[in-house]
């Protein structure tokens, strides 16, 4: 591991920091492409994700959002900077308390939904019976019980996405990273799933970071929104939202007067960069 990177547990006695689930400090990432050129993707991300909050990341396409998630879940190492997790248990892999739902559903076509969903448990060495019991539980709770024995090709996009979410939740991580979980879905399914996911995650008291291209979705679901700049990316602006929490529903959140104001502000934030990109 890079010497500059330190994953440390914050002591629970520090009252202020206790609220912070993930602390990103001056995160930097530079890739080297095939020709040996350095590509600076993340310039400096400094961001505190609070315990049990729902925070969305909005930014231009290709700015490095997925890269940021890959770093947080320790799939890749940052070039510089620190990631501090509050509940980090020193002997464990950093990823083990983070559930990462990748950009596509990525269900294995050769496994039944039941076996797909229990993949994480299976990898941690749980017995087959244990895996299946728990997986059945989750599947029936989220309306996929009848499809346990079906293969992914038999499911609709929305159901596949829900199966992918269950696969992420089943290992019971404290922190959930969602990378554009709804991008492949039609508008109605999206609205329904947004509500479902927010309520599921809130019920379990999860800390959630959501990447999305959809400003409206971010406003409707989040407690806070971080707007990123064009690549090399930084946090450009942070917005406090909390509409979904206030109304208890993402659909109702969309009819609040603040929804439009926020939309315009965030749009303005992004538009400047889109304009700059075009020129």
């Amino acid at each position: 591991m890079n010497a500059a990177v330190r994953t440390a547990a914050i002591s629970d006695t520090e009252p202020y920091k206790q609220e912070v689930a993930i602390s990103l400090k001056h995160l930097r990432k530079t890739f080297e492409d095939e020709d040996g050129n350095l590509v600076e993707v993340i310039r400096d991300i400094t961001l505190d994700v609070r315990e049990k909050e729902f925070i969305s990341i909005v930014g231009p396409s290709g700015c490095g959002k997925t890269t940021m998630f890959n770093i947080i879940s320790s799939l890749i190492e940052p070039s510089d900077g620190e990631i501090i997790l509050r509940k980090w248990r020193p002997k464990e892999r950093r990823g083990s308390q983070i559930g990462y739902m990748l950009q596509r559903d990525l269900l294995f076509p050769w496994r039944t939904i039941l076996d797909n969903v229990s993949l994480g448990l299976e990898l941690s060495g749980a017995s087959k019976a244990e895996c299946h019991d728990k997986a059945y539980d989750y599947l029936s709770r989220y309306g996929l019980g009848d499809f346990a024995k079906a293969y992914p090709s038999a499911l609709s996009g929305g159901m596949r996405q829900r199966a992918a979410l269950i696969r992420t939740l089943i290992t019971d991580p404290d922190i959930i990273l969602l990378d554009e979980p709804f991008s492949a879905l039609d508008y109605q399914t999206r609205l329904v799933l947004e509500d479902e996911i927010v309520s599921i995650l809130r019920e379990f008291g999860k800390t959630v970071v959501l990447i999305t291209h959809d400003i409206g979705e971010a406003i409707a679901m989040s407690d806070r929104i971080a707007v990123m700049t064009q690549r090399p990316t930084m946090v450009k602006n942070l917005y406090d939202v909390g509409l979904a929490r206030q109304y208890g529903s993402c659909i109702k959140a969309r009819s609040d007067a603040r929804y439009q104001t926020l939309f315009d502000e965030i749009w303005a934030d992004l538009d400047i960069q889109l304009g700059a990109h075009r020129s």
Binding site: N70, L75, Q103, F108, G120, L123, S124, T171
Partner: peptide
């Protein structure tokens, strides 16, 4: 094999040998 699938396995905590038996072998079948 799609690198995203490998990433998925790793994000679920899979070891190299598990990636081999549970992803590489069936995906290459």
């Amino acid at each position: 094999i799609d690198q995203s699938l490998v990433n998925l396995m790793r994000s679920l905590g899979a070891k190299q040998q598990q990636i081999f038996t549970k992803l590489v072998v069936p995906a290459t079948m």
